[in-house]
């Protein structure tokens, strides 16, 4: 049952990813990417990471992709649609794609016996199955407190940077 769900979600994910990459105009690309990100959230739920799945939907789909759509509306889409589509880098892309995918698949297959499905380490998840959010929160505010603060400073810098960059010069 779990496996069937996995294959359905994986199929949707790969299909929409390829459509994102090959779509002729950026609006379609963005909509396909939203679908791909939603099925990714489904995979996160399947992996029992409920909090991260919810954050994926809220932050990625609700935040970042909406920002993308706003920017697509701001810039001149009509002009982009008529742009010449063929890229002269397709040979590079094919070579790199074949090399990279064979390398990654080789590593995954070679490492298959190392990554046993038996859990090692602490049993944080087993205990946390009913309250994933709570354990993520307590870990975030204890062990990872400093990185969390640095992340908030990073967001502040990005916000100020974006405002300064797009300000009209006098």
């Amino acid at each position: 049952m779990e496996l069937i769900f996995f294959y359905i979600l994986a199929g949707i994910l790969v299909t929409f990813s390829i459509l994102t990459v090959t779509a002729p105009n950026p609006i379609r690309s963005a909509v396909y990417l939203i679908s791909a990100l939603l099925s990714m959230a489904g995979l996160f739920f399947l992996l029992e990471a409920e909090f991260v799945g919810a954050v994926q939907v809220l932050v990625y789909v609700g935040g970042i992709m909406v920002l993308f759509l706003f920017v697509i509306m701001l810039v001149n889409v009509r002009e982009m649609e008529t742009q010449r589509r063929a890229s002269r880098h397709w040979k590079t892309a094919v070579v790199l794609g074949v090399v990279l995918s064979s390398e990654l698949i080789f590593l995954v297959v070679r490492g298959a016996d190392i990554f046993s499905t038996e859990g090692i380490g602490s049993n944080l998840i087993v205990e946390a199955q009913t309250r994933n959010t709570e354990s993520v929160g307590s870990l975030l505010y204890s062990t990872y407190l400093l990185p969390f603060e640095i992340a908030s400073i990073l967001l502040l810098v990005a916000m100020v940077g974006a405002v300064v960059l797009t300000m009209k010069e006098k």
Binding site: V14, V21, I72, A93, V94, G97
Partner: peptide
């Protein structure tokens, strides 16, 4: 891995900076 490779190929193939 497959998704990562699709993304990489997309960056090289696309001419549109948004995509």
């Amino acid at each position: 891995a497959i998704l990562f490779v699709i993304g990489t190929c997309g960056v090289i193939l696309q001419r549109n900076v948004l995509t």
